[in-house]
Design a binder for these strands. Structure first.
Lengths: 224, 224
DNA sequence: TCAAAAGTGTTAGATTTACACCCATGA
DNA sequence: TCATGGGTGTAAATCTAACACTTTTGA
């Protein structure tokens, strides 16, 4: 308290927009808020930033606490700091989004925490300014997914081209021409066709592909 | 202190990356830090967020304090929150960038505050993580200037096409073909040619243009 | 008279978009 | 046998990028 003691401090929290992709829809993980004020309202999952951790670490810790997952793709959305954004106290919150494969999140843990995957187009009203955070995060991944190969984080390691296309359609919010899409994919050598065939989603079966991160780092140019 | 009292609070500050354009260069306003720790180091201009103001208001207040300017284009860059980013105490800082016309900032006020316009390519080492803030802010305006007509904020109301081109070159960091540039400008009807001629920067003289905001809002499609 | 900046069109190449049919299989 | 999703190529249109000379005028 030596330098800045004449200034007042505030609570700082992090809120996580956890994106998943399932049933051809972009989903967000939300739950009922467990504390006052606003107990019982739909909400993003968040937590307070403690004195000994960076804001990035706080976001990672919060995500880990909820999902048990490490090494997740997370990026900051921005700080939300209206004075009355939280109905209880003055809290500044920093939003982060995370991209996970829904299959990596155990149903058991999910239900234990009482959170649910909800279609991003059908979100209920959320606590505080959380809807705004989600919109902003969605906007950001829309942009970023065109120029960086981050979409794969939302898919299993092996995926079909149709799955990949549906993902891009769900995030971008509009249909994509199948042939044009596949043409562009074929130009990216780091999206590798395997000899494996997925028989779950069609009778004929579809080739499974994988994203080769190492090949991407050498070759590295992505554009969709 | 009723709801969240078990959690610790932190100081939150705002730091302003104030961009200007002069002598065909993108410039940033920096000054010598007036307080400990780090007194005397080159630094962005900033201030603490008080309990009664939003973070956006804190940024506006800080900018007003330094420049006397209202209604400036300001956007949040993001939150910077490493534990030891500030050498004195744990402070989370939210960076904002502002775009101003250097002519709108009186030399008198500027010297009173002891700040200077420095070419963004030639910035010295700045206090704390301020260089990182500047890089990130620069990156963001580079992106945004291609899709939104915000560059005009850095120019006088009346400007020549060469000035506009030099601005885009300075921000983008690469040369632009003159004819292609002017072709695209001509397609945007909200960039209006006036009958006025600027004789300062060339012997022959160049037509002055103005950005018509109202026309833009009706017509509205910008791409550079 | 010459240096310095203003102003002006065309063309080749690259990129983007639109579009329709056959294939393989399980039910 | 038929409904379902998998897989494939071409052509027109649009966009982008490259490029050079004439004009004006103050010094």
């Amino acid at each position: 308290m030596t330098y800045y003691s004449e200034h007042s401090k505030v609570w700082v929290s992090v809120d996580c927009i956890i994106f998943g992709f399932d049933e051809n829809k972009l989903k967000v993980l939300i739950g009922r808020r467990q504390m006052d004020p606003g107990r019982g309202q739909w909400s993003l999952y968040g937590g307070f930033v403690s004195a000994e951790e960076s804001i990035d670490m706080a976001a990672e810790r919060t995500l880990l606490e909820l999902t048990g997952l490490h090494n997740v793709y997370m990026r900051q959305v921005g700080a939300f700091g209206n004075v009355d954004r939280d109905p209880g106290e003055r809290v500044i919150s920093i939003a982060y989004y995370a991209l996970i494969n829904v299959k990596d999140y155990s149903e058991k843990l999910r239900t234990e925490h009482g959170v649910e995957w909800v279609n991003i187009e059908e979100l209920p009203q959320l606590y505080s300014d959380h809807n705004q955070m989600v919109s902003e995060a969605w906007h950001q991944i829309k942009q970023r997914m065109r120029s960086e190969p981050i979409g794969f984080r939302l898919l299993p390691q092996l995926f079909t081209l149709t799955q990949l296309q549906r993902l891009y359609e769900a995030v971008g919010g509009e249909e994509i021409d199948k042939r044009n899409f596949r043409k562009r994919i074929k130009e990216m050598d780091f999206i590798e066709k395997t000899e494996l065939i997925d028989k779950l989603s069609s009778k004929r079966g579809a080739y499974l592909y994988r994203f080769n991160k190492k090949a991407f780092n050498e070759d590295s140019n992505f554009k969709l």
